[in-house]
């Protein structure tokens, strides 16, 4: 402490004295910040100073903050920022789909559009090849029209139903 003008007698006098029990006024964070910056009028500042004078925690807070705000600050650990940033969600998660289901299905506008297109083309080619090897629609149609007649099939179905009911004793 600077003792150039503060004598032992002054200190002893102060130690024999006690400030009266003063009700500490409520001080908001914003008021305290404004006082720290010296933005308040004399009357407004007096109210804060009365509170600070009666509260040791506020006195320490004022001194600590005044010192911190007046010095260059070291960088914070990167993990501190990463954790804090995770508190507010990502825009992509919160935004409604803007391009419709078809665009999102095809991946248009996304970073994987080309691989998705290649995969889709390959799938279509395989499907067509399989269809062609199986004879396609033409062979199925021919079988339906010129192959076994529908009456035979229906009589077979009818016989199966009769046998089923007979086995249940109906």
């Amino acid at each position: 402490m600077s003792t150039d003008r503060i004598t032992q007698a002054d200190k002893e006098l102060w130690q024999r004295l006690a400030t009266g029990p003063v009700a500490s006024p409520e001080v908001s964070d914003l008021e305290f910040a404004a006082w720290l910056e010296g933005r308040l009028s004399e009357t407004q500042a007096a109210r804060i100073e009365a509170a600070v004078a009666t509260n040791p925690e506020m006195r320490r807070a004022a001194m600590d903050l005044s010192e911190i705000l007046g010095m260059p600050l070291p960088a914070a650990p990167p993990r501190m920022a990463v954790r804090a940033q995770a508190l507010v969600g990502f825009e992509a998660e919160r935004a409604a789909p803007r391009h419709g289901w078809l665009r999102s299905l095809l991946g248009l506008g996304g970073g994987f559009a080309l691989p998705r297109a290649a995969m889709a083309t390959a799938a279509v080619m395989i499907a067509i090849s399989g269809f062609m090897l199986g004879g396609g629609l033409g062979e199925s149609y021919a079988k339906e029209r010129y192959g076994n007649s529908g009456t035979v099939v229906s009589s077979q179905n009818s016989n199966e139903l009769t046998a089923f009911f007979a086995s249940d004793g109906i």
């Binding site: 007096a46 009365a50 004078a53 010192e67």
Partner: peptide, 20 residues
């Protein structure tokens, strides 16, 4: 005054420097 009390508290109770 409130300011006088505050200054005395800082200088004597908190043992702070005048510059602080």
């Amino acid at each position: 005054t409130e300011r006088q009390t505050l200054i005395l508290k800082y200088l004597y109770d908190e043992e702070r420097d005048v510059a602080e």
